[in-house]
Design a protein around this nucleic acid. Sequence first.
DNA 1: TATAATATCGAACACTCGTTCGAAATTGTT
DNA 2: AACAATTTCGAACGAGTGTTCGATATTATA
Lengths: 222, 222
Amino acid sequence: MPGESPSRYDQKLVYVLKTSAAIFAEKGYHSTSIRDIARATGMSLSGLYYYFSSKEELLFLIQDYCFGTVLDESRRLLAGVDDPVRRLKLLIENHLNYFVNNMNEMKVLSHEANSISGDLFKKVNNKKRQYVDLAMELISEIAREHKVQGVDVRVATFSLFGMMNWIYNWYNPRKDVDAAGLSQNITTLFLSGFLGGKALGAEKVETGRESHLDRNVSVWQQ
Amino acid sequence: MPGESPSRYDQKLVYVLKTSAAIFAEKGYHSTSIRDIARATGMSLSGLYYYFSSKEELLFLIQDYCFGTVLDESRRLLAGVDDPVRRLKLLIENHLNYFVNNMNEMKVLSHEANSISGDLFKKVNNKKRQYVDLAMELISEIAREHKVQGVDVRVATFSLFGMMNWIYNWYNPRKDVDAAGLSQNITTLFLSGFLGGKALGAEKVETGRESHLDRNVSVWQQ
DNA sequence: TATAATATCGAACACTCGTTCGAAATTGTT
DNA sequence: AACAATTTCGAACGAGTGTTCGATATTATA
């Protein structure tokens, strides 16, 4: 049912997640106290626990929501596309686009991957494995199709993720190329390398830009 | 003066650093207590403070020692080599070789870069900037020489560091290719990309394998 | 407006943390 | 053996942590 507006509860939960993600991204999960989050959200310490049952679950909610979106969106985009090179390009584009537009959440997802444990860790890691497997299979197909030799598929896959996930360490939206440029650059780098850059032009593809979390947050922003 | 053996103090300091780095790498800096380190080293809580003046300084000592070695070694290796492509290959090879042989320290250096603050942060960051600048200038030279178009030098540089520094998230010495293979793969990927892999073979280069920290640690190991 | 459901809060608890300090043990020197 | 320097330790302090709980305020329902 389209047009159904999210409940008061959901709206505020999203606000809490978004605010927490920003602080986690800035100070790190372990250096952030629930009191920090209370201050930033304007809520009381105990009031926050109405929206999560532990600090670790709060981290989980951020990571799970974030990864779920990336995974769903990439599947949606790849559906109906057959050529593995084209599919990989879409995956890269979606990944980087979401990263740039949700830097806080993606930093928390990348950098705090081991700050979570037990079942919550497993849940996030399942999605992560699915996502990595998808990319690795694409790269494997490409290797077969194009008879790539001398490059290990596992090394190639994680090198690609390294390129993409490292950006929270250096990327500056006001200084660097935009998300589309970033995708274009990294796609070229991965496929053709630094010295063969002219061979493959990555065409622009339409992907959603706005964060899901952004949608309902306006009410709560000062 | 070669052959001068390190003092008792230095030996044990190195032992403390090495042990701490292993725990920091496993549990993360903020989740590690000085009591954890005391237990692992077999020393008392207060006894540790004879070797560092604060937990943060302990982190600094690990990062500074580690980065200093990488930087010095890379300068030593690059001295006398003119061709920028050759120079970059050496930098990559040295970086990955040191990374694989000192995974704990390099993980602490990469992953805990923002767990340190103030002057100590500045000190480490100065070395980091020098190192990044060195790589970026090499890449810039290569771009000029080979008339590379369509790839941003800054994006390329940090993508390379992303590939290299991400490995602590996935690399398994017992499962993956060794340090030499890793260098070969990543050099090829960066320069020729996944689809142009055959063009450039990265020749093997001799670099030191043993960690500096390893040298004097044997006495203290159980 | 009365009643139920939802949402928020202040205060406190139990615990862990980094760090200090004076004394004791160990090692090196004469 | 006597002394000095180096190294180690136990015990404690004060501050900050995540979390709980009963009560209160707010909103929705009738």
